[in-house]
Design a protein around this nucleic acid. Structure first.
Ligand SMILES: [Mn+2]
Ligand SMILES: [Mn+2]
Ligand SMILES: [Mn+2]
Ligand SMILES: [Mn+2]
Lengths: 219, 219
DNA sequence: ATTAATTTTTAGACTTACCTAAAAACCATT
DNA sequence: AATGGTTTTTAGGTAAGTCTAAAAATTAAT
């Protein structure tokens, strides 16, 4: 059994929204992530459910099946390996890879992905710090904490960022924030959730709640 | 204006069948190359004609327009660059690349293809000896002659092969024939068009007309 | 010049993946 | 328990890309 591009995109979205398959996912959440209409999501949900890759009861949201999880992880593995390729080998900036990887993740060839993995030296994380599942679908999840949850005076290392928004990534570039950067929380502004942070013990910058919620630190 | 995967496949087929746009192409020829029904070809021809990438009069076959030629060459460029990547970087055998390249050729990203070209060192030929069009669509056509046209006692270097059939390429591997191999025609059997040839001044082997018509030599 | 064979096109249908508009179910209040 | 708002589903429709069967045009053969 094999999935079309569209089916793969939906399944991946469902997997990511379900936090590794632990939570149930709503139609609207999927519709927003994929920029399609809820009606289209309902259609696709029925299809994926018939194929057995998700579990579904009308009006009760969907969860991902064991088989679906495996297939979603295969797509995610491909997406992230291609991102590594683009950055490491083709000198793409981290904000330029998402859209291309969104296409490349659908290329069908087990040999290709095995060889690509080997060629890249079996990377464990993509350019945004996201873990790359291995062939068996096993993920090396890093213990990390959202910057917005970090207390004042505590410091850590940026270990992952939200990769889907190029504008966000360009903004981080401008701020001098990258995977591996040291960040110390200098001041938390309760009023709007923004923070003043010290980056690499050099620049002191103010960043919004929005940004804090898309940066993960390892402490 | 942009073309779908299917449209790109048709346009490429038409370009290749038209020998660089010089000849007119029949519906049946396209249908056979793409393994679709003639009725489907008629449908697609109308679409491509409306888009201005081919020239078409009912029942009179199609020819490719200047714009169509440019777009076909872009797809061919991508196909062949990816083939080089797969062989040179990912250690694919030359008989394993065609199907994957058939998918990769449709990835849309001008930056990707420019960087890939650079990463590969601006190759001029693909693993089957086919020329790779440059960004402007200009092809370095090698002067070559079909082995079946070569006279007895004449020798040459294998410079290109038909890439679309993995079985054919595996057969060449077994025979010790590769791009760059020296071939001398020892004997031509008029009766069935087969030949006895000497490869790299070592093995003497007999090959069929079929094979001779898919091997090009530079003399 | 007819007739026969072949090629090409049209007609009508199916699947996938999307959409809008409307109905149905769910949920959160009062 | 009834109401109103939100979420989700259904109904019906479109476009792309394919198909089979049948009609039309072209080409080849008598
Ligand atoms: Mn995708
Ligand atoms: Mn990423
Ligand atoms: Mn293709
Ligand atoms: Mn080739």
């Amino acid at each position: 059994m094999s999935l079309s591009f569209a089916e793969e995109n939906y399944l991946k979205a469902i997997y990511l929204l379900s936090k590794n398959g632990t939570e149930t996912v709503s139609t609207n959440a999927i519709s927003e992530m994929l920029q399609t209409r809820p009606a289209s999501v309902s259609d696709m949900i029925r299809k994926l459910s018939n194929k057995g890759v998700i579990l579904y009861q009308k009006y009760q949201g969907v969860s991902i099946s064991e088989e679906g999880k495996i297939m979603a992880l295969r797509v995610i593995r491909k997406h992230r390996l291609w991102e590594v390729f683009l950055v490491e080998k083709l000198k793409f900036n981290w904000d330029e890879v998402h859209e291309v990887a969104e296409q490349l993740e659908h290329i069908r060839s087990p040999l290709l992905i095995r060889r690509l993995d080997e060629f890249l030296g079996f990377p464990k994380y993509d350019p945004h710090g996201e873990p790359i599942p291995d062939e068996a679908g096993i993920i090396q999840e890093k213990k990390s904490i959202m910057l917005s949850e970090v207390a004042e005076m505590i410091q850590g290392i940026v270990c992952a960022v939200n990769d889907s928004n190029p504008l966000f990534l360009k903004y981080l570039d401008r701020m001098g924030i990258y995977i591996g950067a040291g960040v110390r929380v200098v001041e938390k502004i309760d009023f709007d959730g923004s923070m003043v942070v010290l980056i690499d013990n050099k620049q002191k910058v103010s960043i919004s709640r929005e940004v804090c919620e898309n940066l993960w630190l390892s402490i």
